[in-house]
Simulated scan of single mutants.
Amino acid sequence: MFNLLSKFSLAIAAFALVFSMGSCKKDDEDTATDTDLSMHLHYKVGTEDFAYDQVYTIDGVAVKFTLAQFYVSGINIMNDDGEMHSFDDLFLLAKPSQMDYALGTVPASFGDHLHMLNFNLGVDSVTNSQTEADFTSRDANDPLAAQNPGMHWSWNSGYIFMKFEGEIDTDGDGTTDSTAHWHVGKNSFLRAVELTAHEEMNENHTINVELDLSTIFTNTNLATDYQTMTMDNMPLATKVADNMATAFGVE
């Protein structure tokens, strides 16, 4: 009789435990909320904060920037289970004057752990080959509309994915003396960026991303490699695009 009662009591306890665990899970699901996700982009040059017209020393060469902007597209995030959430049709024109960008709403079903942030530098081939009407009819606030300074070769030649301009010291006296420009575009120069985040998201969450502009000149000789319009200097354009993809990190 005692054994029978003991077994019955254990069964009741086990049932209560399972019911309790199920109730907790249901409570967790009920209290889960959507996340309004944004990205904060912090420009740096090495260990220094970025500013236009400030002279930096990169690999022993004096450099200053007068323009530094680029397109971001194909943004998506991944959780620990490998599930993706994409921000479809979102294009950003990243520039130092704007550090904060709203990405969109992440549904509660995604979970609260952000494992990776992924995006492309540039725009997809379909967007890059739009018609003149598509391009010229865009609202002035649309990042893909005509820009000043321009971020488009021409309506039928596509976007400039990355555009950096400034001055370089070419004679080694520490003073910038020559105009520099690195304009990178064309479909083959689209580059993917993958960043591991490992962040617990709350209702309003910001991913802090750092960009080190000095990285884009890795394996170049700044004193001589300071001009490309892509097609006139493909090797340098390729280096800049490849380096740019490695220039980001999560703060």
Score class of each variant (00 low, 15 high):
residue 210 E to P: 00
residue 117 L to Y: 03
residue 196 T to L: 07
residue 161 F to D: 07
residue 141 N to A: 15
residue 179 T to W: 12
residue 204 N to V: 13
residue 120 N to Y: 06
residue 115 H to T: 13
residue 205 H to D: 11
residue 210 E to Y: 08
residue 162 M to K: 13
residue 128 N to S: 05
residue 126 V to L: 12
residue 233 N to A: 09
residue 171 D to T: 02
residue 230 T to M: 10
residue 207 I to Y: 06
residue 199 E to C: 05
residue 232 D to G: 10
residue 196 T to F: 06
residue 146 A to P: 00
residue 142 D to T: 08
residue 208 N to P: 00
residue 199 E to V: 14
residue 124 D to M: 02
residue 136 T to L: 14
residue 238 T to W: 10
residue 137 S to T: 11
residue 113 H to Q: 14
residue 201 M to N: 02
residue 218 T to P: 03
residue 159 Y to G: 12
residue 237 A to P: 00
residue 207 I to S: 06
residue 133 A to L: 10
residue 161 F to W: 05
residue 233 N to R: 14
residue 148 N to K: 13
residue 189 F to L: 09
residue 197 A to E: 08
residue 234 M to D: 12
residue 225 D to S: 12
residue 125 S to W: 02
residue 229 M to P: 00
residue 142 D to F: 07
residue 201 M to Q: 01
residue 139 D to C: 00
residue 150 G to Y: 03
residue 180 A to Q: 06
residue 197 A to D: 06
residue 127 T to H: 02
residue 158 G to N: 07
residue 201 M to K: 00
residue 197 A to M: 05
residue 179 T to Y: 13
residue 238 T to Y: 12
residue 146 A to G: 06
residue 137 S to H: 06
residue 228 T to I: 09
residue 222 L to C: 04
residue 190 L to G: 03
residue 229 M to I: 12
residue 219 N to C: 03
residue 209 V to K: 02
residue 135 F to L: 09
residue 168 I to D: 04
residue 216 I to C: 05
residue 198 H to K: 14
residue 119 F to V: 02
residue 117 L to K: 03
residue 144 L to K: 03
residue 191 R to P: 01
residue 210 E to L: 14
residue 195 L to R: 09
residue 169 D to N: 10
residue 177 D to I: 03
residue 120 N to W: 05
residue 113 H to T: 15
residue 143 P to N: 04
residue 211 L to N: 08
residue 138 R to P: 00
residue 115 H to V: 08
residue 201 M to I: 07
residue 123 V to T: 03
residue 222 L to I: 07
residue 173 D to C: 01
residue 198 H to T: 13
residue 188 S to Y: 11
residue 190 L to Q: 13
residue 229 M to A: 14
residue 217 F to H: 09
residue 124 D to I: 01
residue 169 D to S: 05
residue 211 L to I: 14
residue 219 N to F: 03
residue 158 G to I: 02
residue 132 E to T: 09
residue 220 T to Y: 07
residue 231 M to D: 15
residue 168 I to E: 01
residue 170 T to M: 02
residue 195 L to E: 03
residue 238 T to N: 15
residue 143 P to Y: 03
residue 193 V to I: 04
residue 220 T to G: 08
residue 182 W to R: 11
residue 232 D to K: 10
residue 136 T to G: 00
residue 135 F to W: 06
residue 132 E to D: 10
residue 171 D to L: 01
residue 176 T to L: 01
residue 138 R to S: 02
residue 138 R to V: 01
residue 220 T to E: 09
residue 134 D to Q: 12
residue 227 Q to R: 13
residue 216 I to T: 06
residue 132 E to L: 05
residue 179 T to I: 11
residue 222 L to P: 11
residue 200 E to N: 14
residue 140 A to Q: 10
residue 224 T to Y: 11
residue 195 L to W: 04
residue 156 N to E: 04
residue 181 H to L: 11
residue 174 G to K: 14
residue 133 A to R: 10
residue 165 E to N: 13
residue 151 M to T: 08
residue 159 Y to I: 04
residue 174 G to Y: 10
residue 149 P to M: 01
residue 205 H to G: 06
residue 154 S to Y: 05
residue 140 A to Y: 05
residue 169 D to P: 11
residue 197 A to H: 06
residue 190 L to Y: 04
residue 163 K to E: 08
residue 193 V to S: 04
residue 197 A to K: 07
residue 170 T to A: 01
residue 185 G to R: 06
